[in-house]
Deep mutational scan, measured.
Amino acid sequence: HRQALGERLYPRVQAMQPAFASKITGMLLELSPAQLLLLLASEDSLRARVDEAMELII
């Protein structure tokens, strides 16, 4: 289940942060499945989480 969510998330994360897409997707997969579904449904929520992840990385 998580694998399938990751496969759906990755291209969207890659479009926002290509250099760190794998790392960010891995970080996002730590969230609950319900939270992941919310990110897939909301571009704004996904962008906010990706921005948060980038702050942790750099």
Rank of each mutant, 00 (worst) to 15 (best):
E7L: 08
A4V: 12
P33S: 14
L36Y: 02
R2L: 15
K23G: 04
Q3V: 12
P18Y: 06
R8C: 06
S42R: 07
V50K: 00
E55N: 12
M54I: 06
L37D: 05
L5R: 02
K23P: 04
E55V: 15
V13Q: 01
V13L: 05
E7Q: 13
G6Q: 13
R2K: 15
S22P: 06
R12W: 09
L38T: 08
L36E: 00
E7D: 08
R8W: 14
S42N: 14
Q14L: 15
D44L: 08
S22I: 13
L9H: 02
S22H: 12
E7T: 09
H1F: 04
Q3C: 08
Y10V: 03
E30I: 06
S42A: 07
I57D: 01
L31I: 08
M54F: 10
A19M: 13
T25M: 15
M54C: 04
Y10L: 09
D51L: 13
T25S: 04
T25K: 02
S42T: 05
L31C: 05
V50P: 00
R8D: 06
S22N: 13
L37V: 08
S32Q: 10
A4I: 14
G26T: 15
A19T: 11
I58R: 11
A21K: 00
S42M: 05
A21D: 01
A19K: 12
F20R: 02
Q35H: 07
S32D: 14
P11A: 15
L38F: 14
A15W: 04
A19E: 15
Q17I: 12
S45W: 07
I24T: 00
L39E: 01
L40C: 03
R47I: 06
V13W: 02
L37E: 11
L5Y: 08
I57R: 03
M54S: 03
P33H: 14
P18N: 05
L40N: 01
I24Y: 00
G26F: 15
R47Q: 08
K23I: 14
L39P: 00
P18R: 05
E43H: 07
Q35K: 07
E30L: 11
R49I: 08
L37A: 08
A41M: 13
T25E: 01
L36F: 03
P11L: 15
R47A: 06
I24C: 01
R2D: 13
Q17G: 03
Y10F: 12
S42L: 05
A4N: 08
L9Y: 01
L29I: 06
I58E: 07
E52V: 07
I57F: 05
A15C: 06
D44E: 13
E43S: 08
G26D: 14
M16L: 13
A34V: 10
S22D: 10
L39S: 03
Q35T: 11
R49G: 05
A53T: 09
Q35F: 10
A53P: 01
L31G: 04
S22V: 13
E43L: 06
E43Q: 11
G6A: 15
L31Y: 05
M27Y: 06
I24E: 00
Q14T: 06
R47N: 03
A41E: 08
A48V: 10
A34I: 09
R47P: 00
E55L: 15
I58T: 09
P18I: 06
H1D: 15
E55Y: 14
E7A: 14
E30Q: 12
P11H: 15
P33W: 11
Q3F: 03
S45K: 14
L5N: 03
G26L: 15
P33F: 12
K23N: 05
S22M: 15
A48E: 09
L37M: 13
P11D: 15
H1I: 14
I24A: 00
M54E: 01
E7I: 11
E52R: 08
E7S: 09
F20L: 10
R8L: 15
L5K: 02
R2T: 10
D51W: 13
S22G: 10
Q35L: 10
F20T: 02
P33E: 13
L46W: 02
V50C: 02
P18S: 06
S22W: 15
V50D: 00
Q3N: 12
I57E: 02
L46V: 01
G6S: 13
R12V: 10
G26I: 13
L39I: 11
G26C: 10
D51Y: 15
L39G: 01
E43R: 07
S42E: 08
M27R: 03
A53I: 14
A4H: 09
G6V: 15
I24M: 01
K23Y: 09
L56R: 11
P33K: 09
L56Q: 12
R49T: 08
E52N: 06
Q14G: 04
A48Y: 13
D44N: 09
Q14H: 12
L38N: 07
M16A: 03
R12A: 09
E30S: 14
S42Q: 07
A41V: 12
L29F: 04
H1S: 10
I58N: 12
P33L: 11
L28F: 04
M54L: 10
